[in-house]
Amino acid sequence: MSNRASLLDDSTRLMRDFMTYAVLFQDAVARAAGLTASDLQALGLLINEGPTSTGTLASRTGISAGGGITQLVDRLESAGFVRRERSATDRRRVLVAPVVDEVQRRVGPLYARIASEWETYLSTLSDDDLRVCVDFMAAAVEINRRHVEDSA
């Protein structure tokens, strides 16, 4: 096997492992925060993308519009992680908005140790190596996002 083929095989295996352990870590964080994995993923989307309708949140998470997404939002609202608010442009429309300070206060510390380890590792990289990592992760996010949307 050529060096490139070997590297491609390694990258495939490592990406699979990375995604598996990322999901398992997120599950552990969700449990520690008293949330479900779906709750935590929805919070992540709301924090990254801002307030959105329950219908949009349902389609982005793959949770059925109506009962399923309403229960998720109800749980997050009861826990103080989100609030429902009227759209500034269409007062008939209700948006789900993250309470970022509360999420950071209660969930942020659960990421502290892993964030510290990543910070330590990334500090060992040159700017050029770090640029390659950033480009790779940006491409991975975009590819995964596109495939999530295509699967919905």
Rank of each mutant, 00 (worst) to 15 (best):
D135N: 04
A88N: 10
G50H: 02
T70K: 12
R92A: 13
W118S: 03
S87F: 10
S38H: 15
I143Y: 06
A140W: 06
A112Q: 03
A30M: 04
Y121I: 05
T70C: 13
D135C: 10
T70H: 11
L72A: 08
S123I: 00
V141S: 12
E142I: 11
R92Q: 11
T89P: 06
P109W: 02
W118K: 02
L125F: 04
F18M: 15
V73P: 03
D150V: 10
T124N: 12
D128N: 11
V96Q: 01
V73I: 07
L43V: 00
W118D: 02
E102T: 05
A42M: 00
I69Y: 03
R105D: 04
T120Q: 04
G108F: 00
R84V: 03
F81D: 00
D74T: 11
D129Q: 15
Q71T: 05
A28G: 07
A5C: 13
F25P: 15
G108H: 04
R75W: 01
A42V: 03
E77Q: 10
S38F: 07
E49P: 02
T124H: 05
P109S: 00
S2R: 01
R4A: 04
M19G: 06
A33F: 02
L43S: 01
R16P: 15
R93G: 10
G55W: 09
D9W: 08
A58V: 08
V132W: 05
A115M: 05
L110W: 03
S123R: 12
T52M: 05
A112C: 01
A140G: 13
L122A: 14
T20A: 13
S64E: 13
T124E: 02
M19V: 09
A115Q: 14
E119S: 09
R146M: 15
N48F: 12
A79S: 03
F136Y: 04
V29G: 10
L95P: 00
I114C: 07
A88V: 03
P51F: 01
G66P: 11
G62K: 04
G108E: 02
E49D: 01
R83I: 07
I47Y: 10
S116K: 05
R60L: 15
D27F: 13
V99R: 06
R83F: 08
I69R: 03
E149Y: 10
L57M: 00
R84Y: 03
A32V: 04
A97L: 07
R31Y: 07
A32Y: 05
S151M: 13
Q41W: 07
A79V: 03
G55R: 09
R131W: 11
M137T: 11
C133L: 09
R106A: 00
G55Q: 15
T89H: 11
P109H: 02
R106T: 00
A37T: 15
A79D: 00
